[in-house]
């Protein structure tokens, strides 16, 4: 009973085995939603959402990490506290904040996709900031001293001597954060953004017969994407080591 059962089969037959015809029938919808007639959705939207959030999180993490490295005393402590806040709350809670409160606070209509991207970027940025900070702190003190002795300013030393070395070490963390963001982008389901998990739940509630097949298949799509990035991260870290 694996696979090639007819689509119009009675529901009872599904109990003997798995029915993957249902996947074949809904494949385009799961992969790119109603596109091109309607908006982009499914796995394609998951990728778009995760790439946009990863880039924003990377920029934010770099900025905050550098700020952490340069700031001293109370400013440093304040930064650590703010970053700790973002790391302490569930991604879901942050999505609620951006989805329900951004429109009220800004007085404009914020689309669900943007609010989720915002939440994911903030969380990702908060995590990456510490990785960037650790990367900068991992460069030996002597490098700073040498740069300063040459008459460079602190910012110049950071820009031309420290960052080029530490960014290489950080590349795997950036890729790993991307994997996390792909998984976290599934939370967009909660606010009705039609990414992969949402369309899967939609297909599931329309059919209500083959939930195991649908979620196994969707899990497999995520698994392929995340594992590919995982392999990439370990290749990169081996080449840089």
């Amino acid at each position: 009973m694996l696979g090639l059962a007819a689509a119009g089969e009675s529901p009872g037959d599904g109990e003997d085995g798995m029915n993957f015809q249902i996947i074949v029938d809904n494949l385009p919808y799961l992969l790119w939603g109603a596109f091109p007639e309607g908006p982009l959705g499914g796995a394609a939207l998951t990728l778009v959402l995760s790439v946009v959030s990863s880039v924003a999180a990377g920029a934010l993490g770099l900025l905050l990490g550098i700020a952490l490295a340069l700031a001293t005393g109370n400013v440093h402590r304040l930064l650590v506290l703010v970053l700790g806040f973002f790391r302490a709350i569930p991604v879901l809670m942050l999505i609620f904040w951006t989805y329900f409160l951004l429109p009220v606070a800004l007085g404009i209509d914020v689309p669900g996709l943007l609010s989720v991207a915002c939440a994911l970027s903030l969380i990702g940025g908060a995590y990456l900031a510490h990785a960037v900070y650790a990367g900068i702190a991992g460069i030996r003190r002597a490098q700073w001293d040498a740069g300063l002795a040459l008459g460079l300013s602190r910012v110049q030393v950071l820009r031309y001597i420290i960052l080029p070395q530490s960014l290489r070490m950080m590349l795997p963390s950036f890729i790993n954060q991307w994997v996390s963001l792909i998984k976290d982008s599934s939370l967009a389901y909660i606010v009705g953004v039609p990414e992969l998990s949402f369309v899967a739940a939609q297909v599931n509630s329309r059919l209500m017969i083959y939930p195991a097949e649908i979620f196994l298949f969707v899990g497999a799509i995520y698994f392929v994407i995340c594992s590919a990035l995982d392999v990439l991260a370990s290749l990169v870290s081996r080449r840089l080591a």
Partner: peptide, 16 residues
């Protein structure tokens, strides 16, 4: 289990 989202796993257990 690490490389698939928790949400999809929960759906799998709950509905499947």
């Amino acid at each position: 289990f690490r490389n698939t989202p928790l949400l999809v796993q929960l759906f799998f257990w709950y509905f499947g």
